[in-house]
């Protein structure tokens, strides 16, 4: 091998790795957005929300509806989608999920096991219900939120570039995670959410109404899911039954990063993203998902509590 050919090869392997790290990190930011809501509802209410992926798709379709009426950029739909999703989440928790929680089952004189199982079944049913309602309204055509940035890229060098849109979403994701962190640590309501997550039985002694706090938690979870949905809708096409694949990504991210940690969700998302992209680069596109699941299995086998759980 000539020196020139060797240099060429070295150059491309560096580019491959850099590309994997960069793209993986960028994707990880959006994986974190997809998963943080799931981690939060589990952390606070021990709720395994199987409808989480469907909530993400609802966010994307809400943007579709808004764009039908308002001649705005899909970015601005976030300002309407986020509050609507928050309200939906709050109401859903108070009128439905609070009535099947561990505490509710206890009030009915049933074992806590019912309270762990019932919400899983309810959210499973809810997910199916939501996707069928979406199918009824929007039919099964693939949709996308059209925007002018879809094909723009940031060029870092001749052979290295990243999607501008994904980069913006990465930044937006970080901003949302920081805001969530500040909310949870600096406000009375945020601390109440964490307190109820630590000890729901004693938190009423602080004057905390757990039913309300749980409503806030699902509201926030759905608001972030909705934001993630809008972002997904701008990057790729979506259909009413796409929810479960995002639920899987969210589960994966949460398993890697550990529950109840915002940093964990971000790092878990980034690790999953990088693994997928590198696996795809070295072993072909079909290895992408396998690579991701290998990482999840690896973490489950050796650190089942996740890399960042306390």
């Amino acid at each position: 091998m000539t020196a020139e050919a060797f240099n060429e090869e070295l150059y491309w392997s560096v580019i491959d790795i850099l590309n994997g790290l960069l793209t993986g990190t960028i994707i990880g930011g959006y994986y974190a957005m997809i998963s943080i809501g799931l981690a939060m509802t589990f952390g606070v209410m021990r709720l395994v929300n199987l409808a989480h992926g469907d909530f993400i798709i609802v966010g994307a379709y809400l943007a579709v509806v808004l764009l039908n009426f308002l001649p705005i950029s899909p970015f601005f739909t976030l300002t309407i989608v986020i509050p609507i999703m928050f309200c939906l989440g709050y109401v859903l928790q108070r009128v439905l999920l609070n009535h099947v929680s561990v505490q509710a089952m206890e009030r009915k004189g049933l074992s806590a096991n019912y309270g762990l199982m019932a919400p899983i079944l309810v959210t499973f049913g809810l997910g199916i219900f939501i996707s069928h309602v979406l199918l009824g309204i929007f039919e099964s055509d693939a949709r996308q939120l059209k925007n002018s940035l879809a094909f723009s890229a940031i060029r870092l060098s001749e052979d290295l570039n990243i999607s501008l849109l994904r980069f913006i979403f990465f930044g937006l994701g970080i901003v949302i995670l920081i805001l969530l962190h500040l909310y949870l640590t600096r406000t009375h309501a945020g601390r109440a959410i964490r307190a109820a997550s630590d000890d729901a039985e004693v938190s009423p002694l602080m004057g905390i109404n757990t039913a309300h706090v749980y409503g806030l938690a699902l509201g926030i979870s759905m608001a972030i899911a909705g934001a993630a949905g809008v972002m997904i809708g701008m990057i790729r096409t979506f259909q009413p039954f796409d929810g479960p694949q995002f639920l899987l990504i969210a589960f994966g991210t949460v398993i890697i990063g550990g529950l109840g940690s915002i940093v964990g969700s971000l790092v878990g998302g980034i690790l999953l993203g990088i693994t997928q992209v590198l696996a795809g680069t070295y072993f072909g596109p079909s290895a992408q998902l396998v690579g991701g699941y290998m990482l999840i299995l690896f973490v489950l086998a050796f650190k089942p509590q996740g890399l960042f759980s306390k």
Binding site: H188, R191, A192, A195, M206, G207
Partner: peptide, 9 residues
């Protein structure tokens, strides 16, 4: 944070 949670009302 534990103390401030006590002042949630």
């Amino acid at each position: 944070e534990n103390l401030l949670t006590g002042a949630y009302l």
